[in-house]
């Protein structure tokens, strides 16, 4: 009796994995990947008349109209270009990229590996470069949604007040070393 149960369990496991495999294959065959489409799409560099508000995963935050550069990257022109990084941080000291809401230790490490250590480097990304990084990290548009470029621009230009008003503190410390907020959530 016991061996029948064990045998049945093996059958069920086998059938479960078979289902997993077939389901996965069916999804890949019949459902188009939303992220894969823009990469393969032909170049359509249409000027955007009106920036489209990006749906945000968070509630109770104001609707933000993205800058044209960000919106362009969201619309995906189909062009991708790897941004040029640097070998090491200027002056041996990297900016605290984790201040950008959406960048944590993992992403910071990845950006360092790609040669990005400073806010101004990220702020200088073109839409094609944003598209490359987004694709490279499989972010499905997160860079645009979380407005990394604008955040980096504000931080690079020292507009702390504006940054704080729009994005909170990113859960980090201020220039005096005080912890301002425990949340990365945008205000």
């Amino acid at each position: 009796m016991t061996h029948l149960l064990i045998e049945l369990a093996f059958w069920m496991l086998f059938v479960y994995f078979l289902g997993c495999l077939l389901g996965w294959a069916a999804r890949n065959l019949f459902v188009a990947e939303p992220a894969a489409q823009p990469a393969m799409a032909p170049v359509v560099a249409k000027p955007i008349a009106k920036p489209v508000p990006i749906p945000a995963p968070m509630v109770a935050r104001p609707v933000v109209v993205p800058t044209p550069a960000v919106a362009a990257s969201v619309m995906e022109t189909g062009k991708m270009e790897r941004p040029k990084g640097i070998d090491k941080a200027r002056g041996g000291k990297a900016d605290d990229l984790q201040r950008i809401s959406g960048i944590g230790p993992k992403n910071e490490g990845i950006l360092h590996n790609l040669g990005f250590f400073h806010f101004d480097q990220i702020a200088a990304w073109t839409p094609a470069q944003v598209a490359w990084v987004d694709d490279h990290l499989r972010f499905n548009g997160r860079i645009a949604r979380e407005e990394w470029i604008r955040q980096a621009d504000l931080l690079a230009t020292g507009k702390e007040a504006e940054f704080k008003r729009e994005y909170g503190t990113g859960g980090m410390k201020n220039t005096k070393g005080e912890t301002l907020s425990g949340s990365r959530t945008r205000k």
Partner: peptide, 10 residues
């Protein structure tokens, strides 16, 4: 079991 697997895979 197959249906659950298919859903998970899909």
């Amino acid at each position: 079991a197959f249906a659950i697997g298919a859903w998970v895979g899909f």
